[in-house]
Nucleic acid binder design. Structure first.
Lengths: 117, 117
DNA sequence: CTAAACTACAACCGAATGGTTGTATATTGC
DNA sequence: GCAATATACAACCATTCGGTTGTAGTTTAG
């Protein structure tokens, strides 16, 4: 076995990247994320908007929190949920890296071809 | 239940976005993606580099293919795998949208605050 | 032609997911 | 103080996932 490219993206360990993309791979969670982008809402506020149990929504929020995409703040009996845009941009940067790598390789290929001319 | 934001991102249906992020949520698959960015490799070429069975790698490639992140081309008895950068950029654009939405909301909040001054 | 290589695919297994209900613990409102 | 609200968390269930082995179909090499 040869590990082909071990670069941990953005300084983020691979398991972190796993968790981030895994968290993004569910439409309910993406919806909660969008919702938490501008404002804070309690878990039950959020739960009220989805056709599933409170516990299910709570789990989705937990997945987002474990991925660092969302932070929870205690206020009395409720936990206010807010999206961390920094973390979203990290996910973006991982993809940026891939696209940049692709461009670099395409450019290198172009260079080789023009060199042959 | 109130669906909070049904915008299908980029014209992509939600299940497609699910599949893309799900496919990205595994380090082996991300590795295969990076590898397929500049060049083509057969499935067994790829499999040779990982410490798992051929069938396992084949499945990973299938997941990437189902997500549209990779295309396979038949050449004789082998299938050449190549990454589709277009698709990566789509995933990027989904995140772009979230970040843009966030900025818009922050700007709106700023506007309200300065208005109050 | 036959053997080897490349792929596809099914069946199986343990672990993780996405949902449920139920119970326990803080906090709040009256 | 007590009832209602908000959360946490465990237990359970069906399904999916990531891996395995095994079998079968093509294509290539000798």
């Amino acid at each position: 076995m040869v590990v082909y490219c071990t670069l941990p993206a953005d300084g983020l360990p691979e398991e972190e990247v796993d968790r981030i993309f895994r968290a993004l791979a569910d439409s309910t969670r993406r919806d909660i994320l969008r919702r938490g982008l501008g404002s804070e809402a309690s878990v039950s506020d959020i739960a009220r908007d989805y056709d599933m149990s409170f516990a299910a929504v709570q789990k989705h929020v937990a997945v987002l929190e474990a991925a660092g995409l969302v932070v929870k703040r205690a206020q009395g009996r409720q936990r206010l949920v807010r999206t961390d845009p920094e973390r979203l941009q990290r996910a973006q940067r991982v993809l940026d890296e891939y696209v940049a790598l692709w461009r670099a390789r395409v450019d290198r290929l172009d260079a080789l071809l023009t060199e042959d001319d």
